[in-house]
Design a protein around this nucleic acid. Structure first.
Lengths: 216, 216
DNA sequence: AGTTCCAGTGAACAGCTGTACACTAAACAG
DNA sequence: CTGTTTAGTGTACAGCTGTTCACTGGAACT
């Protein structure tokens, strides 16, 4: 029996086929992760849902940890797409804060599974997975710090303080992500409330900037 | 063989004895949680480390989830002790921010296991555990909101905004907890840096307050 | 056309998991 | 002193786990 291969009947190249089942594994894992944590997610379950036999797993990943890291990469691609989007059209809205929160909202709703995975495994999760997330998040924070340096009062801030502020913003945004994912009931009203609160948080942070004493 | 009972030889009441092994189970779990997540932590491992046979587990908890919830309660007692401490001696230091961050630092270092458990299982973790943490954290945040209302400009803020600010502070503090727990290398210098950054974060937030437009 | 490569198969394994069950012995109540 | 209660024991079992190994059939290369 060759379930997956037979159903997807069209003649395709070997590596294309491989890539396809690899993706099936990632998708299967992501679906299962909607209810469970990555930690108690077995290799057998994932392969079963992906439609292959357990042993075939090793043709794609050396271990579940490796699958986890691949999942981080995939999720991070989603995150980066979001960030680029937030950077490119800030002119569309009057306020940058509103624009950023809105793009966050859109992207989280469009890729809940990725964001759920990232926020859940950020602190729990296996060593490699946790590290991969931390690295990417730090990178993101650093980029944000550079962006911040172009603003009015922030031009004269030193690097440490800019990073401090960027970290705070990222932290606030991530807590918004969690709120959106865990939101109940799931309607526009709840979403609107979360978005509004997120905007307020950022506004409060930015309002502190003019009062910051640079020198120390 | 009755390992635990025999070693702790003194004649004690039955319920006292029960309470003792119950605590042994909680301690054993907490020790194991230093390296692994609660999700992949087996009943058998915990009982083994606690020095009792697997089946005896059920004399104390109906399931691992229940053990988890008990662990949340224990950890939360630690958290509450910290908060009371932070509230009681703010006069000792000139600034409230510095005082709060310092008590946080002290308590995290004194009870790393509890704080590690809370921060790790906050977003991953089984349903009941996650809910228990969320409830307690929300309670804490509400208390903080009440406290905030006594400050200069914050007196005239509405409840929603006060809660927004309290949540932001709690979020910032929790990220500080994670930084402390994950700190490497583990020396006073690193700790001092983390503490200083935490103080800056809070300062930035508070500096925004005077510029906040109350009405909306 | 013949050969190599390799993604996926299926059986088998040792080890661990949670839980049911009948038990013992010591603390307890009368 | 007698009978009851109960925390902890030991055996047992079915089910799941990751990983091994020899295998197959079709795409890819020569």
């Amino acid at each position: 029996m060759r379930t997956l291969a037979q159903v997807t009947a069209e003649p395709v190249s070997r590596q294309e086929r491989k890539q396809r089942t690899r993706q099936a594994l990632l998708d299967a894992a992501l679906e299962l992760l909607a209810e469970r944590a990555f930690a108690n997610l077995s290799l057998r379950e994932v392969t079963k849902r992906a439609g292959i036999v357990p042993t075939a797993f090793y043709r794609h990943f050396a271990s579940m940890d490796e699958l986890g890291v691949a999942l981080v990469e995939e999720s991070m691609r989603t995150l980066r797409r979001m960030i680029r989007s937030a950077r490119s059209n800030p002119r569309t809205y009057t306020h940058i804060i509103r624009a950023s929160v809105r793009t966050l909202h859109e992207h989280v709703r469009a890729h809940e599974d990725h964001f759920r995975f990232l926020t859940r495994e950020r602190y729990s999760g296996s060593g490699p997975v946790q590290r991969a997330i931390a690295i990417e998040l730090k990178l993101f924070s650093s980029d944000l710090a550079v962006d911040l340096a172009r603003f009015e009062h922030l031009r004269e801030w030193n690097t440490d303080d800019l990073h401090m502020m960027a970290d705070l913003i990222v932290t606030a945004m991530l807590s918004t992500v969690v709120e959106l994912i865990e939101a109940r009931p799931r309607d526009e009203e709840t979403d609107a409330l979360i978005v509004k609160t997120a905007e307020k948080r950022l506004r409060l942070i930015f309002l502190g900037v003019p009062n910051w004493r640079v020198v120390r």
